[in-house]
């Protein structure tokens, strides 16, 4: 996965970038299965690896596929990136180690979902329970985000009728 990203940063052929990105998403999806996040993996595979790649290819088809050489040296971006990275290192240092069952996220809110969710709602997939019921409003928001993007794309790329008339 990391190799795909490194290759992605280096290469200038946008077609290769897109293919590498698809590969990367797919690998991410497998990692997610390993992390027991089956629902997420399924979504990432369908939407991240599948649909995003189709979209990117579609956009590439409409644009040029070679990236130009960057005109200036990337020192400032590098500095910003490393600065952010350092803050992240600083921040993650004290986090609970991997697979620590006593970490706060396993002891505070989540147990109740696991204990009560299936009983109260009759749905054994706890992810679905939380998604649709406990945090149903988030999901409403997320549906609205999709809706917004759809409307936005229509507003941007909607047919220009006058152009077509001009052609005929």
């Amino acid at each position: 996965m990391m190799i795909a990203v490194v290759a992605l940063t280096r290469t200038r052929n946008l077609f290769a970038v897109v293919v590498l990105f698809g590969l990367y998403s797919f690998l991410t999806a497998t990692v997610m299965v390993a992390l027991d996040a089956v629902d997420v993996a399924m979504t990432e595979a369908a939407i991240g690896a599948g649909f995003s790649t189709v979209l990117l290819l579609g956009a590439l088809h409409l644009c040029k596929s070679e990236e130009e050489k960057p005109a200036h040296k990337p020192w400032l971006p590098l500095a910003v990136t490393i600065g952010t990275g350092l803050v992240l290192v600083y921040g993650t240092w004290d986090l609970p180690p991997f697979s620590d069952a006593t970490a706060p996220i396993h002891t505070h809110v989540a147990p109740r979902y696991l204990a009560d969710g299936p009983r109260v709602t009759g749905v054994p997939n706890v992810v679905t329970t939380i998604l649709a019921s406990y945090r149903g409003f988030d999901t409403l928001g997320e549906t609205v985000v999709v809706f917004t993007a759809g409307i936005g794309v229509i507003a941007l790329l909607g047919r220009r009728r006058y152009v077509r008339r001009g052609k005929q």
Binding site: D36, V40, Y113, V127, D138
Partner: peptide, 18 residues
């Protein structure tokens, strides 16, 4: 495994693709 982060990330993926 903890289900809550998975729910949040489902939302985040969809926001990302949007």
């Amino acid at each position: 495994s903890n289900p809550l982060p998975q729910v949040l990330i489902l939302t985040a993926i969809v926001v990302g693709v949007a």
